[in-house]
Amino acid sequence: MNALAARRRHPAAIALLLLLGLILTGVAYSALAPKQADAASTAASSVEDGKKLFLANCATCHGLQAQGTKAAPSLAGVGAAAVDFQMGTGRMPMAAPNIQAPRADEVRFTQEQISSVAAYIASLAPGPAVPEAEYTTGQGGDVALGAELFRVNCAMCHNFAGSGGALTRGKYAPSLRDVEGKHIYEAMVSGPQSMPVFSDDNISPDAKNDIVAYLHEVDKQENVGGMALGNLGPVSEGLFVWIFGLGIMVGFAVWLGKKAA
């Protein structure tokens, strides 16, 4: 104890104390923080269970009858595909009201629970259903045709390599890297948020499978070396060259012009 007391005026003491305090607060929070409401976990995906889950997790914003409120749109007619996409990618439930729901790493519901809610929402009004698995794996898809379809229909927002891009007033088209084929398909048929709808009448299920095949091919693409800089094209590459390339050249010019000591 004496040794501790002797070092209490050491310059590192205050930093150490702060760190300790932060760690303690973090541990205490993780132990005491409110947990996600875990309503009814059942085996069968049924409308009834879905309704319970909906009331517990979604009704605050979307209304008790999913009729929509000022904070969130009506869910009548959005279909099971929209629910499966929004909840399956962690976008819903939203952490906080925001200009756009971001994709989350952590999905807070099991696939069964999501299917229950989807069944409930689909029972309210007809809408696009969760797609058949044969069209969402990309297997057997024509990658070249998928790439052409992607460039015509998707690339203006999502970038030629699916890296995403900016829209107006803070909205953005998210990156399509490492997204499940099922979710890509569902986004096309349901048109989440700013995205327009690409129904099966516009882009056929086979063509959608081609697009998924293309995106999976892009995911597998090897980096041949060097920084990809987000695959954003001339903006990020130009910025990099202007700052670092020119910076190095200016540095060398200054060094060349300076007399040795």
Binding site: E148, V152, N153, G191, P196, V197, F198, D201, N202, A207
Partner: peptide, 21 residues
């Protein structure tokens, strides 16, 4: 017609919120 497939488009295929190139 759709780009790139060049297939004609029926009016009832264009749902609200859709965009066709």
């Amino acid at each position: 017609v759709r780009d790139p497939e060049r297939t004609p488009i029926r009016a009832d295929q264009v749902t609200i919120g859709s965009v066709f190139h």
